[in-house]
Amino acid sequence: MLIPLSALQHYAFCPRQCALIHNEQAWAENILTAQGNALHERVDSGEPETRKGVRFERSVHVSAECLGLSGILDLVEHDLASGYLKPVEYKRGKPKPTAMDEIQLCAGALCLEEMTGKHIMEGALWYGQTRHRHAVAFSDGLRAQTLDTVRQVQVLLESGSTPPPVYGKHCKACSLLDICRPKLFKSDQSKRYVRELFEI
């Protein structure tokens, strides 16, 4: 089974969210996901084009059998003179405090490397809220973090289990908040009740 690139971003955001989506096939829309879908529809609908010696390919399907990954890159820029490839991902919001977006982008670059045999040094993230492109260097540290996330996601998906919720600020931005119900689990005393019920 090949892991979708999006699962890495989901896992880096919240392992429980990743399991709900990819193990339990749960999904729900909110205003944030709807805006993200609209952004990707605009990006994905563009035709390939060449400008100033750079070929722009949209909705590029990639996979890496050795890594067990597959997915779709929003954009791949191909410098026709040097042969250099640069993956670009479009995100609705703004740069995150964690490396979740960088991990997904780096995983896409690793797929491109396996497919083409070319070393990819950097990519970019474009954020709709700031309307700014951020360069991302695929450093040894980011590559190691990405590969570690791939391994953790493989273990999670192969287990078929869903981790318990850990409520935090990130929960407010999650479209699965009503399905996950982390506050309810946080206050759930049923295990303690049953344990005390049978204590002698």
Rank of each mutant, 00 (worst) to 15 (best):
L32V: 08
G53L: 03
C18A: 08
L67T: 06
S59P: 05
L69Q: 08
L32E: 08
E57S: 10
H22F: 07
S59I: 06
Q35F: 07
N37C: 09
N30V: 03
P48H: 07
S63E: 15
R58L: 05
N37Q: 13
Q17S: 14
V62G: 04
L39G: 00
C66L: 15
V62A: 02
A34N: 12
E41L: 09
I72N: 13
N37P: 03
S45R: 07
A26Q: 14
L69T: 05
G68Y: 00
C18W: 03
S59M: 08
Q25C: 10
C66N: 15
W27G: 07
R58G: 04
Q25R: 13
E47Q: 13
N23V: 04
V62P: 01
F56N: 04
A64I: 06
Q35E: 11
L75N: 09
C66F: 13
G71M: 09
V60T: 03
S59W: 06
I21A: 00
V76T: 13
G53Q: 01
T33A: 03
R55C: 04
G68K: 05
P15E: 06
A19D: 02
H40Q: 00
R16M: 06
D74T: 09
C66V: 14
E24V: 05
Q25N: 14
L32R: 07
G68D: 02
K52F: 12
Q17M: 15
I21E: 06
S70A: 15
